[in-house]
Structure formats: C-alpha cells, structure tokens
Design a protein around this nucleic acid. Structure first.
Length: 467
RNA sequence: GCUCCGAUAGUGUAGUCCGGCCAAUCAUAUUGCCCUCUCGAGGCAAUGACCGGGGUUCAAAUCCCCGUCGGAGCACCA
C-alpha cells in the first residue's frame, strides 16, 4: 500500500488517517507500505521543502516506519519512458488546443483534431515537450480514452503539461514537462507493486481514468476504495493546511504546534500519543461518506495510554486566596499516584493561606476537604481546620478540592485549545522536566513544555491535553 | 447541465454482498449510582439509530423502484 501525500505543508489531524489506516493494515496483514510524495506540480501546488521531513516525522509520530520513501520528482524519466511507450501503442496524442476549446469539444463528445496524428509525429512532439521546445499552454499530451464516454470527466484527459516554474527541489529543478497525478500515480502504483489503494472521494474518477492506461499496457488495476472527508469537532480553526498557514502568517497562531491548531505537531506538544490518534482513525473505518471525528475519541484512547504513568499534581487556575486557622499540619502529603502507593507521596508546605479555584469556594459555614490535608470549616472569612478524619467526606456533603499554598506555589501558564490560562501549581512542579506528562488533579492531563521568564521571575509553561 | 457515490443513536462503527438467529453490536459521549481524599481510573445502570414512500416476500436495516438530503468529479491541481 502507499501513502501518497502532496508535500505542501505539515500535516493536520485529518492527514493522519491514511498512514494510521494503511500502517495498521500493514501490521495486521503482514503487508508493505511506502510514502510516495506526489510532488509533480511545482506551480499551483508548489511543494514546501520542509514538508517532506515534517510529513515523515508525522508518520513516525503516529507509530509507523515506511518500508520505502519515494519522490515523484525523482522519477520523471520513468514517466517519460512510459509516455513514449504509450504513444507507440497509439494511446496518447499531443494536442495544442487551448484548454477551453478542448473542453467545449469534449463536452459535446467531439474529438480534438489532433486525435489521429500518427505516433511518429506525436512522439516527435512529445520529445519536443520534454526538451522544452514549447511554452506552457502550447502543447499537452492527452491519453486517448473514449471521447464519447458518458462520464465527461473521463474523456481524453491530460497526462503531461509544461510548467516554467522550476521545481523547488534542486534535483528536479531542470524539468519543464510534468505529468499530472492520474498519469504519474497510475504508473507508479503499478511499478511499485501496490495491491491496494485507499484514497479520498475527490479521486473517485481516477481509477476509471487510469484504467485506460492500464488497459493499453495490459496491467491489472489494484483494489481501490474511496473514503470521505474527516471533520474534527472541538476546534475553532478549520482543518485546512492553507487556513492554518494563513493564521500563522497573520500572527494569530504561534506556529504549526500552537495548541489551538488542529495539527499533528500541536497534539504531540500537548502530550497526546500518536497511537491514540491512530486508534481513533482506525475506528473511523473507511466509509465513503464524510465523517466527523470526535476529539473525545482521541482523548479517550490517550487517557487509557497515559493515565497509569502520569503523576498527580495540583494546579489552581485563577486562584482565590483564603487564610487558614486552627493549626493545620505544616505539610501535606498526597500520593504521587492514587493507584500506585509505591511511588510515594508529594510534599506541599501548607503556610497560612491557600488558593482555591473560584468554583470550589465553600459557602459560609460550609465544610470542605482539601485534598491530602484535611477538612476545614469556612467561617468568619477563614478556613478553620477541623481535623483529618476522612469520614466526613465519606458521610457526604463535603466537597473534596485541590489547592495550593498562597505564596510557596509556582506560577504556571497552561495553554489550552482555546486560550492560555494562568494559575499556580504546587512547588514540586518547578522541578519537573520538559516533556513530562502529568495530571493536574481535577483539571486534566498536561505536558510540561518548559519555563519562561516573566517580570518577577520564572513561570512554568504547560500544554493542556484533555480531561 | 452531464456523471459518479453515499445515508444505522450526539459521534464513530457492526450487520447490508448470500433477507429470517437484529424490538439491531461495540466504542465514545451524556446522566445517575457504587467505589475512591480527583470532575482521572475501576464497577453498574440509563439515554439514544436503521432518511421518507412504495414494491417483492411468509419475513426487509438487508433486495427493487421513486423521492429527499448530503458528498464528489466534469482542470494544462493534488
């Protein structure tokens, strides 16, 4: 099987579907798969040189290693040779008709006047195209199909055209005569021994077009299935490479890995494992209708992968300060992970005031349980310590909340898919290394990204993954 | 206008080819309960779907026709 991307930018989440599915099928059925960059348009779909590697990194992130990597722009001579052969078989002709004129004839079911040129003339003119003797628009090579085919999309389609803009890859910069996708991809699929093709519904007619070429050569067409488009819920930003690129260039996004961007780089930075994305994509199946991918599906898979390994910490977002009274312990020691006592406990100094999230503030004369510390009664504007008998929680009516010391806590900027949230975390968070994935209790999973300088010192930057 | 494809719960999916065991599977989501010092994990339960209309048949989610809705192609884009 093959994954044949156009390297016009880093991948968004939707792109993950192809490698996820064919990579999984490869593993399941002991198959073979390659990545083949179909980069045969240096002009309107101009390849982005950085995208080649970015895409291969994306495949790796999703958990797969391609068995081979090809670039169509390395293979022009192969396509030329097959074009010559096709011409000799009488399956193609050079045509100098402008696009609109041919289109009008085609829609009327009438052939181009060039259709019956003898192969010698066609071959000579094609060599002229390869040699750059024509200007763009002056000459194309068409595949001779069926000019009266009931589907106008299949009638005598273009196989090669001329493009003056040099290809961005130095290896291919000298070529001017470029094949179109249906020719290039059709030839390559056979030559590379592809047995199964998966592609989008936008290419529904490709197999039918390419079948004409396969018939001329006596080749057998691979099995092919088409699937619909994937929409993501939960994102404000459209899942489109060009839209994301525009937002980045306009400064509205920080880059391809901005947490608000629906890109693979963004999910990776948020601490979401590629396997979780792969699993969610495989669950979508290969139906031909458009599908909506619920991000919660990716999150559910990721939670299963990371929950056990993620240590717990407290983070209070936009905290409200409450003084403590009644001589609580000087230090709280909640477990590092509630399901793994052997990992030990954390140490959080208690001080004389704590921060709570606004939604957790107790009402007057209400009791509240600070996790890992004990129970308090909110009375006369202070939290009065009333002991550490957990029974009060079991009996009900006492909320269990997370908290941090008012002054000993460390500032945190938590970047989410919607906005950046400021908060303060328990002191131990200052010692976490970048790339560590933790769970802020009652907030959600987050990946420690690094530190940044602010006016009065340093701040931890974390990327929010999901609840 | 011409051509092609699709339609099962909020979302995805199984079942459709070879009609009955489908008052419809599983996952996710939401809600409630149990457990737990988390709104995480674990356990239990509830919610919720065959696009509409005809036809064939003893029997239709499944086969046929019509309609509706949605998607795609008709490029010197991929």
């Amino acid at each position: 099987m093959r994954c044949a991307p156009n390297p016009n930018g880093p991948w968004h989440v939707g792109h993950a579907r192809m490698p996820a599915v064919i990579g999984t099928y490869k593993q399941r059925y002991d198959g073979w798969f390659c990545v083949r960059f179909d980069d045969t348009d240096p002009e309107t779909k101009r390849p982005d040189l950085d995208a080649y590697d970015a895409i291969l990194e994306g495949v790796d992130y999703l958990g797969f290693t391609p068995d081979a990597v090809y670039r169509a722009s390395d293979r022009l001579e192969i396509y030329y040779d097959h074009a010559r052969e096709l011409i000799e078989l009488g399956g193609a002709y050079t045509c100098e008709l402008p696009g609109e004129e041919f289109s009008a004839l085609k829609n009327a079911g009438k052939p181009s006047p060039n259709r019956d040129k003898d192969p010698e003339t066609v071959l000579a003119e094609f060599e002229g195209m390869v040699a750059g003797e024509y200007d763009p628009g002056e000459m194309v090579l068409r595949v001779k199909t069926d000019i009266k085919h009931k589907n106008p999309a299949l009638r005598d389609w273009v196989a090669f055209r001329l493009i003056d803009t040099p290809h961005p890859r130095a290896e291919a910069a000298e070529y001017r005569c470029w094949p179109l996708l249906d020719f290039q991809s059709g030839i390559d699929d056979h030559l590379l021994g592809i047995t199964h093709i998966v592609r989008g519904i936008d290419l529904q007619d490709s197999a039918k077009r390419q079948q004409f070429v396969y018939d001329y050569f006596g080749w057998e067409y691979p099995e092919v299935i088409h699937w619909g488009h994937v929409q993501l819920d939960d994102y404000d930003v459209k899942t489109s490479t060009s839209t994301i690129r525009e937002l980045i260039e306009a400064g509205e996004l920080d880059g391809w890995d901005d947490p608000r961007a629906p890109t693979l780089a963004s999910l990776e930075r948020r601490g979401i494992r590629g396997e979780a994305i792969t699993a969610a994509m495989v669950e979508l199946g290969t139906s031909t209708s458009d599908v909506d991918l619920a991000m919660s599906s990716i999150y559910a898979h990721n939670r299963e992968l990371v929950d056990d390994a993620s240590d717990r910490r407290f983070l209070v977002r936009d905290g409200r300060e409450l003084p403590l009274a009644g001589s609580p312990p000087e230090e709280a020691n909640p477990p590092v992970h509630p399901d793994h006592e052997d990992r030990g406990t954390r140490s959080i100094p208690v001080e004389d005031a704590v921060l709570l999230e606004e939604g957790d503030l107790p009402g007057r004369e209400e009791r509240i349980w600070l996790k890992g510390l004990g129970s308090f009664l909110y009375t006369r504007d202070v939290l009065q310590y009333t002991g550490e008998e957990i029974d009060v929680v079991r009996e009900g009516g006492v909320d269990v909340v997370h908290w941090v010391p008012a002054t000993g806590s460390v500032p945190v900027r938590l970047r989410t898919t919607e906005e950046d949230v400021l908060g303060r975390a328990e002191p131990g968070v200052a010692d976490l290394e970048p790339d560590e994935l933790i769970q802020f209790e009652r907030v959600g999973f987050a990946r420690i990204d690094g530190r940044e300088s602010v006016d009065d010192g340093e701040r931890i930057v974390a990327y929010y993954a999901h609840p």
